[in-house]
Amino acid sequence: MKKLLLAAAVLVIAMAACNEKQSKDSIIGSWVMPIEGQPGKMQGIKLEEGGDASSINMATLVYKYWEQQGDELYLTVKSIGNGMEIEGIDTLRIEKLTADSLILNSNYGYTLRYVREK
């Protein structure tokens, strides 16, 4: 009986680890959205395995690192503009994540709608 309980516990832990890895992997990639007022131009973020992040076509907003905890996405970002540099962590709620769509909500009331860059 003890062996059966131990095997079940190991199986549950393994399944949880696989699910966590799978959900983290699904957000990895390049996510873009149209640049307002610039038809055909896109901007966004690249989320790499290992937690590195980078901006796509955004010279004044530099993404550095990312971390996902449940439905929260934490982005370390440096804003470069008006002669000042401000670094911080954006906390965004993952509203929707599919193979080709990522919708993030900010605590400040804005929504970011991305598509996966191919």
Rank of each mutant, 00 (worst) to 15 (best):
Q68T: 02
E67D: 14
I56L: 15
D71A: 10
D52A: 11
Y74V: 11
I80S: 14
T76A: 11
V77W: 01
S79I: 01
Q69Y: 09
S54I: 05
T76K: 07
E49L: 11
T76L: 13
E49N: 13
S55Y: 07
D52V: 03
Q69N: 07
L61Y: 01
S79C: 06
A59C: 05
L73K: 05
D71F: 00
V77T: 15
E67R: 15
E49I: 04
E49Q: 13
V62L: 03
W66S: 09
D71L: 01
S55W: 01
A53C: 06
D71T: 11
T60V: 05
V62Y: 03
Q69A: 10
S79V: 00
K78M: 08
D71N: 15
S79R: 01
I80M: 14
K78S: 15
Y65C: 09
N57Q: 11
Q68W: 02
G50R: 08
A59G: 05
V77G: 13
T76F: 08
M58S: 14
K78Y: 06
E67Y: 15
S79A: 06
E72M: 12
T60H: 07
E67V: 07
V62M: 03
K78H: 03
Y63F: 09
Y74S: 09
I56A: 12
A59Q: 12
D71C: 06
A53E: 04
L73A: 04
S54H: 04
Y74L: 15
L73S: 08
V77R: 01
E49G: 06
S55R: 08
T60M: 03
G70M: 11
I56Y: 02
W66E: 15
G51L: 00
E72H: 05
I80L: 10
Y63E: 06
S54L: 07
G50T: 05
I56H: 02
